[in-house]
Design a protein around this nucleic acid. Structure first.
Length: 577
DNA sequence: CTAGGGTTAG
């Protein structure tokens, strides 16, 4: 039989009875059982109704369903309604992976502005196969995973109205998406309150997600608040909770508190894992505390943990930042010896450290080595190089890397633009920096506080305070909040022009705006005040000397008050400049 | 379903 399929095809196309959908489904089913992978190009007249028949009829046969879905997936007859039916069945089989990818496909490909239509389909197909609320959780999770937050919330609300019970999984997924999208944390709190109001008990995942959200938004206190709330709630923190909190403390340079949490874990009977160690090592490395780093590393291996890719990348980066490039290379070699492959992150670290050392040749060597090892640079690798060239004032090279980046399909990110703005400002081309801002806006990348602060500091550096303050005004109008760096730049600009009173007013404004001054702000002001008081002191000494000299009626040889004043004014102008 | 590593401004 040279063409066994042809016969079936002909017989299916010739059907025209009122039961043709059922018949079609039966035929396809028989065929599917025998030739699961050869269904393509056949059944061109297959219908959504036939698909539904088939799904319902074979809803107890996993393999059959999966084979059918594989075939049906790209075809137009596989409508949202059919997909919903399939979701119920997949969920019943607990085939959550397949169900989730189908749900994501449904979410992406169904024109459905609010999620109402998909919910309607789910509801209608629900009774057909004795499904459960688990489907709602699964669909909500898929929508949340795609960051379709509004639709996910809408589906939860519709589900509640229609008698379904969205569970903790739905809420956790929404919370996670809210936090990953960096929505205001207040939004996350509202979802949490809504969840509690609906009688859904938060679990350890819920709290972990919330704690991470608040911590990464810089609100450690709120994170700690939820930490105590969960204990009060009888929800025991786990390793993940502690790792999240330890990491948050490390990122805020509160390593001592991080260690306290680390010890507290043991008291609660929780064992640290490799991630705990990696988090602490990273915290120490960021602070350049390399001695303690190796101590922790030692403790880690004594407890039987083996350094993984992340550990090595952290260490390579840490030693690079510490300027101990030799040790970084030793670890890089050790990593390879231990069967771990240096990845894009390892190389980006190495490239970055070469950039920071101003050795762009070595940076490019590593960049080429990546290629040799079959590693593809990503957006961050390119941005690191662009920034490196910009910092060296090599704008042409920076643009060459930028072009390669675009050619390889990566769009410049916010950070890429900021690096380029900085490159221009450093060379005094502040107006060109401003043009870059226009450029990025055009490309749909919103300038952030760093973009504006860079321009402001550029204007300050080139003594154009008026334009710097214009920019500040523009930031306020655009609703971008100023931070310590922005204020410090402006204060420094004023100080450098000896406009101390204005600098002081701005400092006051900064405090009123609730922006906490940092080390740099204080150093700038202290330095300016020292300079001013030093001058004042000099002036007093000078006046004293002059009057003493006058009293002495010029009897002392070699002292001429006029010459002294001349010299002093030279010294003063030197200091001022 | 939750946790870790690489990029930007003064």
């Amino acid at each position: 039989m040279p063409f066994p399929n042809l016969h079936i095809h002909r017989s299916l196309s010739s059907l025209s009875s009122p039961f043709s959908d059922a018949f079609l489904a039966d035929k396809a089913l028989t065929f599917l059982k025998r030739h699961p992978y050869q269904l393509n190009s056949l059944f061109s007249n297959f219908t959504p109704e036939a698909a539904s028949f088939l799904l319902l009829k074979s809803q107890n046969d996993q393999t059959l369903i999966l084979n059918f879905l594989k075939w049906a997936h790209p075809h137009p007859f596989f409508t949202p309604r059919c997909k919903c039916l399939a979701l119920h069945i997949l969920t019943k089989f607990k085939l959550y992976k397949s169900a989730q990818s189908l749900a994501e496909d449904l979410a992406v490909r169904t024109p459905d502005p609010k999620g109402n239509f998909v919910f309607q389909c789910l509801k209608e197909t629900y009774q057909l196969c004795a499904s459960s609320s688990a489907v709602i959780d699964l669909v909500v999770k898929s929508y949340a995973h795609l960051k379709f937050i509004d639709k996910a919330i809408n589906i939860v609300n519709l589900a509640k109205i229609n008698g379904f019970m969205p569970g903790v999984l739905s809420y956790n997924a929404i919370l996670d998406a809210v936090i990953r999208c960096k929505k205001p944390v207040r939004f996350a709190e509202e979802v949490f309150e809504e969840m509690v109001r609906n009688g859904v008990s938060p679990n350890v995942f819920t709290y972990n997600i919330l704690i991470r959200g608040f911590c990464s938004a810089g609100n450690l206190d709120m994170g700690l608040g939820f930490f105590s709330e969960m204990e009060r709630d009888g929800c025991l923190p786990n390793v993940v909770t502690y790792n999240t909190l330890i990491d948050a403390h490390c990122k805020l340079k509160k390593i001592d508190d991080a260690f306290k949490l680390f010890r507290a874990m043991a008291l609660k009977g929780l064992k640290p894992n490799l991630i705990t160690y990696n988090v602490i090592i990273n915290g120490l490395c960021r602070e350049g505390r390399m001695k303690e780093t190796s101590e922790v590393l030692h403790e880690m291996s004594q407890k039987g943990f083996v350094a993984d890719e992340v550990t090595y990348n952290t260490l390579v980066n840490g030693y690079c930042k510490d300027g101990n490039f030799h040790q970084a290379l030793v670890l890089h070699a050790e990593m390879v010896r231990n069967g771990l492959t240096p990845n894009v992150i390892t190389y980006t670290s190495l490239i970055n450290s070469m950039c920071k050392a101003g050795n762009m040749n070595r940076a490019m060597e590593f960049f080429e080595q990546m290629h040799v090892r079959g590693l593809r640079p990503n957006e961050r690798t390119y941005t690191t190089l662009v920034n490196g060239f910009c910092q060296q004032g090599l704008l042409n090279e920076a643009f060459r890397v930028l072009n390669e980046m675009v050619r390889n399909g990566f769009s410049p990110s916010l950070v890429t633009y900021n690096a380029l703005i900085n490159g221009h400002c450093m060379l005094g081309k502040v107006e060109e920096g401003l043009k870059m801002i226009e450029d990025m806006v055009e490309k749909g990348v919103a300038p952030d506080i760093v973009s504006y602060s860079t321009i402001i500091s550029g204007f300050c550096r080139y003594r154009d305070l008026e334009k710097a303050f214009q920019m500040k005004q523009e930031m306020v109008e655009k609703g971008v909040k100023l931070d310590a760096v922005t204020y410090s730049s402006l204060i420094q600009g004023l100080c450098e022009q000896s406009r101390l009173a204005e600098a002081c007013d701005l400092f006051q404004e900064m405090l009123n705006a609730g922006v906490t001054p940092d080390e740099f702000t204080y150093t700038t002001l202290i330095y300016a005040y020292c300079k001013a008081s030093f001058l004042m002191l000099l002036l007093i000494v000078c006046l004293l000397m002059v009057s003493i000299n006058k009293l002495g009626q010029g009897k002392q040889k070699g002292f001429c008050s006029n010459c002294f004043m001349m010299n002093l004014s030279q010294v003063m102008s030197c200091i001022i400049c």
